[in-house]
């Protein structure tokens, strides 16, 4: 079981020793939560990125939405939305999705600045995102480019949780049923207009609460039930 969180925290400690002072060192200085912790005792950061495209090598982050969960409670006070100023023009085919125009994006901050604000908010928490590999890949690329450092943290992919649940029940499903909007409807969550980073982050956070609520909450529910395999 190399894919255990224990090894993730082991990797964190090993990396920490080699890191110079700075944003990344501060981030890795906070221990990752234990895999056996009860979800109700943890803090989560639900995150969503809007980008100019799907390729983390070529495409750029345009906006970041984030909301913090304390146990089974979403703290809206923590809701954060940041626009990122891209290096190149925003392709039209992505602008129709996220509605961020060049003019709008020009009011944003540099990616390094946004990361510097973002990383302390993520430290010590569990990341939540829908189709989290996408967010992880973009964050990884961004951290490597701007801080020359790898990025990893314990992560819950709400899409993966949904897929595993259905697979466990031997239920077949179509890919579009795994989309955020469809899954939310399944759990009787309100319809949101998607593709705003903060709305999507909140949407994923609520979906996670609904998934958590499916467990027997009279007993501790270990976070490892939800974590993405690394």
């Amino acid at each position: 079981m190399f894919a255990s969180l224990l090894s993730l925290d082991y990797r964190r400690k090993r990396l920490l020793k080699r890191l110079p002072p700075g944003v990344m060192r501060d981030f890795y200085a906070v221990p990752f939560p234990s895999r056996s912790s009860d979800c109700r005792e943890l803090e989560f950061a639900a995150l969503d990125l809007e980008t100019t495209g799907l390729n983390p090598q070529q495409d750029e982050i345009l906006s970041v939405g984030l909301v913090i969960l304390r146990g089974e409670q979403i703290e809206l006070q923590s809701a954060t939305h940041r626009l990122v100023r891209p290096q190149s023009d925003i392709p039209e085919n992505s602008a129709v999705i996220h509605h961020i125009t060049d003019d709008h994006a020009a009011t944003g901050e540099s990616l390094a600045q946004v990361l510097t604000e973002l990383l302390p908010l993520l430290a010590g928490k569990v990341l939540i995102a829908h189709h989290a590999r996408f967010e992880l890949q973009f964050l990884r690329t961004a951290c490597e480019r701007h801080f020359g450092c790898r990025f990893f943290m314990p992560t819950i992919d709400t899409q993966e949780v949904a897929r595993r649940t259905l697979e466990r029940r031997n239920q077949s499903f179509r890919p579009q049923q795994m989309r955020l909007a469809e899954l939310r409807e399944r759990y009787h969550l309100p319809r949101y207009r998607l593709h705003n980073a903060l709305s999507d982050a909140l949407a994923a956070a609520e979906l996670f609460l609904a998934q958590l609520a499916q467990h027997d909450l009279s007993r501790p529910v270990a976070v490892k039930n939800f974590l993405l395999k690394v």
């Binding site: 089974e72 409670q73 979403i74 703290e75 809206l76 006070q77 809701a79 759990y187 969550l189 909140l202 956070a205 609520e206 609460l209 609904a210 958590l212 609520a213 499916q214």
Partner: peptide
Amino acid sequence: LPQLLTVRYLR
């Protein structure tokens, strides 16, 4: 006002 709220989901 939204910032003063917290969100919960009850089954």
